[in-house]
């Protein structure tokens, strides 16, 4: 079993179980998770991504058979290209984690026509650094990186009073994905409705994958996603330590789908996507 979406590190707003590497490894053992794709959780808030990336590199070096790094780059910061170069050259980076909402950039092209309905206007503040976001994704394409596009970390209704961060809209995600059809995207923490919406609007690209960490209903969520999207585009991911990792594991294991579909979601797709 391979967890395609998890983190190591602390969260500013509450204590987390399994935040430290040893605790995560113990949890992986308890749940029979062989490998986990991890990013540094502090990089959601740090301005210097290399602080978290350097720590992540040190941690995964100690557990190369268990932890697969996804380094975080914030293209809204000056000289982000240097951060990316260091990750590529020194850390052998193969997977890129992006947080377009927390890091205040969008995937949209400047000239993209979009319908600005009331719900989207609230997110307009994030449509500021388009050029850099596009440049980052161009680099991801050139360097054949898997892009972990994280829509949200947790329910925005529970955010801290002074740190309210709306999720990445499905419109932003779709337009980023469609602009770079050769980039392999793993869309992380989409709900059932987000995934079906993105899949429908992103022309069903072969390079598009979703983790199911935040697919938490309705009653036959996994079955419906397998029918609509296909098990070959769905990956087991936990969003640990923000979520209980048991949620995604139990949801797949108890879904009324074939053993083959479970195997694809729990390991085969991740093996292929991350070349494990």
């Amino acid at each position: 079993m391979i967890d395609a979406n998890a983190y190591i590190g602390e969260w500013p707003f509450r204590r987390l179980n399994h935040a430290a590497p040893d605790a995560l490894l113990r949890k992986m053992d308890a749940l029979d998770i062989e490998k986990t794709v991890v990013s540094r959780l502090e990089n959601v808030f740090y301005k210097d991504m290399m602080v978290g990336n350097r720590e992540l590199h040190r941690i995964v070096q100690a557990h190369p058979d268990r932890l697969v790094p996804a380094y975080t780059i914030n293209s809204a910061m000056p000289c982000w290209e240097q951060d990316l170069k260091r990750c590529l050259d020194e850390y052998g980076m193969r997977n890129l984690r992006i947080h377009p909402n927390y890091h205040q950039f969008t995937l949209l092209e400047p000239h993209t026509t979009r319908v600005m309905d009331a719900s989207l206007e609230a997110y307009a503040q994030y449509h500021l650094l388009t050029r850099n976001a596009l440049a980052l994704l161009e680099r991801a394409q050139a360097d054949d990186l898997v892009v972990l596009l994280t829509l949200a970390l947790e329910d925005s209704r529970w955010h801290h009073w002074h740190v309210k961060v709306p999720p990445v809209t499905t419109t932003d995600a779709v337009e980023g994905i469609c602009t770079f059809p050769d980039v392999r995207f793993l869309v992380c923490t989409g709900r059932y409705a987000h995934i079906t919406d993105i899949w429908r609007r992103a022309y069903k690209t072969d390079n598009l994958y979703f983790d199911v960490s935040r697919v938490q209903g309705p009653v036959d969520d996994i079955e419906q996603l397998c029918a609509q999207v296909g098990a070959d585009h769905l990956l087991f991911g936990t969003n640990c330590p923000i979520f209980y990792p048991e949620s995604a594991k139990l949801s797949i294991e108890h879904a009324e789908i074939s053993d083959r579909e479970k195997e694809l979601m729990l390991s085969t797709n991740a093996q292929r996507l991350f070349a494990l």
């Binding site: 059932y192 938490q216 209903g217 036959d220 594991k249």
Partner: peptide, 11 residues
């Protein structure tokens, strides 16, 4: 179903 599942909450 509003819109949750059994397993996500049993977790």
């Amino acid at each position: 179903n509003a819109p949750r599942s059994f397993m996500s909450q049993l977790a």
